[in-house]
């Protein structure tokens, strides 16, 4: 019993950020995250990207393939392809990327954002739950940053994803509505520099 209490305290200590301080903290299983993992087949988003002083728009397609991989393809309105990424449970592959965008830092950030949204199964099993009154907080305590998934109490949807460096928030991903097994609107907001993405589902 004492060991269990001690382990719980260690886990909770790792996740004890300011944003979680005001909530009662108990460790329970995270089947909730499995429930809220996006379950789409093919979705198309109208996409707005603001990075530093640049504004970029286009269409982003997410498609679940038969081999269980997920492809994320971004094109401009006239059909010019910016990137085509492949996500699997344990892997990520750049299928294609235009030269201007094909920089390690850009690819890593895009990989990070879409991995968080797609919710890799292996990773979500590592999250710890901090139960709250009106929402549920899940936390993964990494070496340099903590990542939070915030869901509704009934585990029907993800409301927010946040990453912090221990003190300050770094990325906030918020979700609105639900259609075709994923949020209708997804807002990605970087707190450390000017980088915002807005994905809005469109009917085809």
């Amino acid at each position: 019993m004492r060991t269990l209490l001690l382990s719980s305290l260690i886990i909770l200590y790792g996740c004890s950020q300011k944003i979680a301080d005001s909530f009662a903290q108990t460790v329970v299983n995270n089947s909730c995250l499995v429930n809220v993992k996006p379950k789409f087949e093919t979705v198309l988003f109208n996409t707005q990207v603001d990075i530093t002083s640049h504004h970029l728009t286009g269409l982003l397609l997410m498609k679940k393939m038969q081999d269980d991989t997920t492809r994320v393809v971004f094109t401009n309105e006239m059909g010019i392809k910016y990137f085509d990424f492949e996500f699997t449970e344990n892997n990520f592959r750049v299928i294609s990327c235009i030269r201007k965008l094909n920089k390690k830092i850009a690819i890593n950030q895009l990989k990070k954002i879409f991995s968080l949204i797609l919710m890799n199964k292996t990773e979500i099993n590592s999250y710890q739950l901090i139960k709250t009154g009106t929402t549920k907080y899940f936390c993964l305590n990494g070496e340099k940053e903590q990542t939070y998934y915030i869901t509704d109490t009934n585990c029907t949807k993800v409301m927010l994803i946040e990453t912090t460096d221990g003190e300050k928030k770094k990325i906030i991903i918020s979700f609105d509505g639900q259609k075709n097994g994923i949020a209708e609107d997804i807002f990605i907001n970087y707190k450390t520099f000017k980088f915002d993405i807005h994905l809005k589902q469109i009917e085809r």
Partner: peptide, 25 residues
């Protein structure tokens, strides 16, 4: 070139000038 479905997007080329209007800006 004015896209009207399934998204709104306007591209105007007038000589050397280019004008773009999307859903936000």
């Amino acid at each position: 070139m004015e896209y009207i479905s399934p998204f709104k997007y306007l591209l105007i080329i007038n000589g050397d000038k280019v004008f773009i209007k999307d859903a936000q800006k």
